[in-house]
């Protein structure tokens, strides 16, 4: 299993969530975060925004679905401008469903 953490534009979140739901991945967790990238924030005229609001979408999927999910997220959240975000993938050794106590995703 792998955990996918995607930092995406807040305005693209609904689109990404619905695309994932359509592809059979309805389960996810999201949280609002603030961050910056290589560009050190955003400069608009004299105003410098050091940290920009992003939405962190987190989901755990089976190894075989990682490519599918990341591709889908990239397609839906890409605008082509800086600030589209990043996707990180990390290993998960076990997942438990609290209701049943079983070690299944």
């Amino acid at each position: 299993m792998k955990m996918i953490r995607a930092f995406i534009r807040p305005e693209k979140e609904q689109e990404v969530v619905q695309a994932l739901e359509g592809a059979g991945f309805p389960s996810l967790t999201k949280m609002p975060v603030f961050g910056r990238g290589k560009q050190k924030g955003l400069q608009v005229g004299p105003i410098h925004y050091d940290e920009l609001p992003k939405m962190l979408v987190m989901l755990v999927v089976n190894d075989s679905d990682v490519d599918k999910v990341t591709k889908l997220m990239m397609d839906k959240s890409r605008t082509g401008f800086v600030g589209d975000g990043k996707i990180f993938i990390s290993p998960v050794e076990a997942a438990y469903t609290v209701r049943t106590g079983e070690a299944v995703l």
Binding site: V60, V92, E93, A95, Y96, T97, V98, G101
Partner: peptide
């Protein structure tokens, strides 16, 4: 955290 109803949550263990 077990109530037996849906929405009890998930636990993930990663290295």
């Amino acid at each position: 955290n077990q109530t037996g109803k849906t929405g009890d949550g998930k636990i993930f263990v990663s290295p």
